Amino acid sequence: MPPTGPKQSPKDTYITVYGRKPVLEALADPALSVDKVIAAEDLSRSALGPILSAARERGVPVRRATAHRVKVLAGNGRHDQGVLADVVAPRMRLVTDFLAALPAQAPCALLVLDAVTNPANVGMVLRSATAAGVDGVLLPRRGVPAIDPLVIKASAGVAFRAPVLRSSTAAEGCAALRAAGVRVLGLDARPGGSALFRDPLPERAALVLGNETDGLSPDVRAELDGTVAIPMRGGVESLNVASAAAVAAYELMRLRRP
C-alpha cells in the first residue's frame, strides 16, 4: 500500500484566481464551478459591482476580509486588486489519494515537475500533458509556482481541468510513487541513462522534468530509479522544459496504444 499523507487542503482542491478581470471571467464561464469570492473590506461596492452581480447570478457567496488577508490568500500582493475567487479543480488531488485508487499493477503515465520556476512553462506543461492524456502531473506545493492567472493563461485555461497531483515537495512525491511501484525516471541529457524512443519505458512510469537552468535537484535525484534522455541532433544540447514535457507525454501515451 502507498504511504498515507496529510488530508487534502483547500490549496489541493481549488485554484485561486485574483484580480477583478480574472475573477469576473471565472464567474462568467459556465464550465467553471466557483466556490466563493473573497473581497477586501476597503473595496467599494461600486468597484466590486460587476463581480457582485455576476456572483449573485451564479449563486456564489461573496465574503469580506481585510486587505492583508486577501493578499495572503492570493499570494500576490501586487496584482490581487483586493479580490479573489476559489475555483473548483475537479481533477486535482493528493498523489497519495491517486495511488490509493490505482489498481495494483495497473499502468500509469505521469509527469513530475521538479523546481520548474517559470509560470509559462508550468502552464504549457499542463496543457500538453492534458492533451496527451497522461494520468497526472505532479506539481509540488514547494518549488513550483502556484496555479495562478499567469499559469492559467499559458495553459489556455486547461489548468482548471488538468489532472494535477499534489505533494509537499517533488522528492516526497517521487518517494510515494516509488513506494507504490511506479518507476521514477528523470529526463536528463547526461550520458549513462536510457534513450527515449529506443529503450522501452515501464508500464508504470513517472518522468521527472527539472529546473530550467539547473536540471534535476539533488533531493529528487536521490529518489530516481534511473534517467532517460531525449535524443538530440544538429548540435542541440537540450529542449525547453515545456517542449521536453510535450515530447515525453506523447511518448508515454503512444506506448499505451494496442
Results as ranks from 00 to 15, higher is better:
residue 179 A to D: 11
residue 128 S to P: 05
residue 28 A to T: 13
residue 83 V to A: 01
residue 36 K to C: 13
residue 250 Y to S: 03
residue 152 I to T: 02
residue 195 A to W: 11
residue 110 L to N: 11
residue 28 A to L: 12
residue 253 M to W: 06
residue 208 V to Y: 06
residue 28 A to Q: 15
residue 137 V to T: 02
residue 214 D to P: 00
residue 104 A to T: 13
residue 82 G to L: 05
residue 70 V to Y: 02
residue 75 G to F: 00
residue 212 E to C: 11
residue 256 R to A: 04
residue 116 V to Y: 00
residue 206 A to Q: 02
residue 80 D to H: 15
residue 5 G to F: 11
residue 31 A to W: 07
residue 55 A to T: 01
residue 173 G to L: 06
residue 57 E to C: 10
residue 45 R to V: 15
residue 150 L to K: 08
residue 77 G to S: 14
residue 252 L to R: 10
residue 56 R to Q: 13
residue 258 P to K: 08
residue 245 A to Q: 04
residue 8 Q to D: 13
residue 256 R to T: 04
residue 21 K to I: 03
residue 48 L to S: 07
residue 155 S to F: 00
residue 193 G to R: 08
residue 213 T to Q: 11
residue 249 A to F: 06
residue 109 A to R: 14
residue 189 A to H: 12
residue 41 E to G: 14
residue 68 H to P: 11
residue 218 P to I: 05
residue 202 P to R: 08
residue 216 L to S: 07
residue 143 G to C: 05
residue 167 S to N: 09
residue 131 A to P: 04
residue 108 C to Q: 11
residue 195 A to T: 14
residue 211 N to A: 03
residue 85 A to N: 03
residue 189 A to W: 08
residue 113 L to W: 02
residue 251 E to N: 13
residue 58 R to H: 13
residue 64 R to D: 01
residue 166 R to E: 06
residue 113 L to R: 06
residue 113 L to Y: 02
residue 253 M to C: 12
residue 118 N to A: 05
residue 173 G to C: 09
residue 142 R to E: 15
residue 53 S to Q: 13
residue 94 L to N: 14
residue 99 L to E: 14
residue 230 I to H: 04
residue 18 Y to H: 07
residue 222 A to Q: 08
residue 10 P to Y: 07
residue 160 F to G: 00
residue 241 V to M: 08
residue 130 T to F: 04
residue 138 L to I: 12
residue 236 V to E: 11
residue 173 G to W: 11
residue 186 G to S: 01
residue 214 D to H: 13
residue 196 L to D: 00
residue 144 V to G: 02
residue 246 A to P: 08
residue 97 D to R: 15
residue 254 R to L: 13
residue 66 T to R: 10
residue 133 G to H: 05
residue 119 P to G: 02
residue 186 G to M: 02
residue 243 S to H: 15
residue 198 R to A: 10
residue 153 K to I: 00
residue 138 L to M: 13
residue 113 L to E: 03
residue 237 E to R: 15
